[in-house]
Write a protein that binds this DNA or RNA. Structure first.
Lengths: 200, 200
DNA sequence: CCTTTTCTACCTACCGACCGGTAGAATCCC
DNA sequence: GGGATTCTACCGGTCGGTAGGTAGAAAAGG
């Protein structure tokens, strides 16, 4: 019976992270089901059995990628805005950071979390769903707070949160890095639209 | 060499449509790659070989489902609003119809088009992309027209179109028919948000 | 009206390829 | 030497797809 190293060395952890990133790239490009373990192993410069030295199973690999992605999201989006006092300014900064996260090349792999939202099962699914829900609740609370303080008009916080998320997260489906709209401008114009609407 | 019936009888066409709808349900529930031909055949009450009497290949089945879905979308959303004179009223009606399309049980299978947006390849993919782009261009033109006529303020039509789409189409990821928000109310509140924004 | 042929709508049985995953040996590096 | 790492070789199962057959209805022929 093969044993998994209980405490990986630094170099092991580094290798493991490299596997996650390579696997994430492939899964984002082809989708989870279409990207086979063989493909992923080859892309990592390993055989299939060699890859299994670093992962427990294909589904666990996906879970690890999603948790890794959520870590990046929280580091680059959620945590930096958490302590902004003004709820409107907080939401604006949050949208800008989130737009940049899903548009910039080096962090686009987080969109696996978006696309494969129904792929995991059981406890793994619940774990990721829990982390996602924290974000939704954060948005809902911020909208509630902004309404309470009279900073925005009385909107339904849930509808506002999911509209916010829809605008921002849908981007991964259509945005092209070589297109006409640079990420920074997209973030600005999207907030302007969300903030003031379309009426004159 | 087996030959496909050139002109299907009415009963054949009806069977074919039933196959599409059953397959669509399965593919929406499990995803295209995860729903096997065997699963689909069994769900249709056929053997695998029997199913192939009605379809040419798995990918062609997906293409047919997407075209079928686009037909329903155009019938229930696009065509009815096409001749509304006022661009703002047109966009509002369009959002409401689109929200209802993706939320109501009997038409939810159209969301396969949304989720599997990168699954098709080659000519099939181009065909569906073409039909999708018609919708994007319709929205962009409507925003342009509304700006030109001074009915809305000067927003970027592309950003407005994709924000509109993001809010509306993201719904399939989170909406639950047994949740707290009925489709009709969601449509109304989402338009209100899109129209007036959040500022007081 | 009855037989013969043709066609529709499936079936059984199978194909080669690939799936995720593993046992156990070989190799590498300290 | 001895653990860490990666290999070869293989497992049973399933994948999309197909060759070829057939029951029964419909059409054609006498």
């Amino acid at each position: 019976m093969a044993k998994m190293p209980e405490i990986g060395s630094d170099i092991h952890r580094e290798r493991h992270r490299a596997v996650l990133e390579t696997a994430a790239r492939l899964i984002r490009e082809r989708g989870y089901e279409a990207a086979s373990i063989q493909d992923i192993a080859t892309a990592c410069g390993l055989t299939k059995a060699g890859l299994y030295y670093y992962i427990r199973s294909k589904e666990d690999l996906l879970l690890e990628i999603m948790n890794y992605g959520m870590d990046i999201f929280e580091e680059r989006v959620l945590l930096p805005v958490l302590e902004i006092g003004d709820p409107v300014e907080r939401l604006q900064e949050c949208m800008e950071r989130n737009v940049l996260l899903v548009t910039e090349e080096r962090s686009r792999e987080v969109t696996i979390i978006l696309h494969e939202h129904d792929t995991l099962t059981g406890a793994a699914r619940e774990q990721i769903n829990g982390r996602k829900k924290r974000y939704v609740h954060f948005l809902e609370s911020s909208f509630e707070e902004a309404v309470r303080e009279g900073r925005i008009r009385a909107v339904n916080p849930t509808v506002a949160a999911f509209s916010f998320l829809g605008m921002v997260l849908w981007i991964y489906k259509w945005f092209r890095p070589d297109g006409k709209i640079p990420p920074q401008r997209l973030a600005r114009e999207m907030w302007d639209l969300f903030s003031r609407g379309i009426t004159p």
